[in-house]
């Protein structure tokens, strides 16, 4: 059986309830400030994205990606590969079809 509310209670508590609901909607926990790292990540579009791990590394250190190659961007860069051939120091692909020896003096 439904009991009707008392009109005085209804008049007093309805605005109070509405006020509490409004305050709850506007307040709540403040949004935390971004940490220093988060702040940089949002502000600096140059933040590097981690590169995927390279499993087939060139023989020596990598070179700048702008280094030109004749075989396209995915080709191996031989300009950092040093080796000894017939007692001389060489740079490049040991199987290169063109073998060039520079006779020179450091002075």
């Amino acid at each position: 059986m439904h009991r009707p509310r008392h009109p005085v209670i209804h008049i007093l508590f309805t605005p109070l309830l509405l006020l509490l609901l409004v305050l709850a909607g506007c307040g709540g926990r403040p949004t935390p400030e971004p940490t220093a790292a988060e702040g940089r990540a949002q502000e600096d579009p140059k933040t590097p994205t981690p590169l995927p791990e390279v499993t087939a590394a060139p023989p020596q250190a990598s070179t700048p990606p702008s280094a030109p190659t004749a075989s396209g961007p995915g080709a191996q860069d031989w300009s950092q590969h040093a080796f000894v051939e017939a007692g001389l120091f060489f740079l490049g692909n040991p199987q290169a079809p063109i073998r060039m020896v520079d006779y020179s003096d450091f002075l």
């Binding site: 051939e85 290169a96 063109i98 520079d102």
Partner: peptide
């Protein structure tokens, strides 16, 4: 070096020429 050596088409080696007295120490 950036083109022909990097591409793997050319390998380059160095052979010392000793033209001056300090050349040997540098080599």
């Amino acid at each position: 070096v950036e083109n022909d050596v990097a591409s793997g088409r050319v390998r380059i080696g160095y052979w010392y020429i000793l033209d001056f007295p300090p050349s040997l120490t540098a080599a």
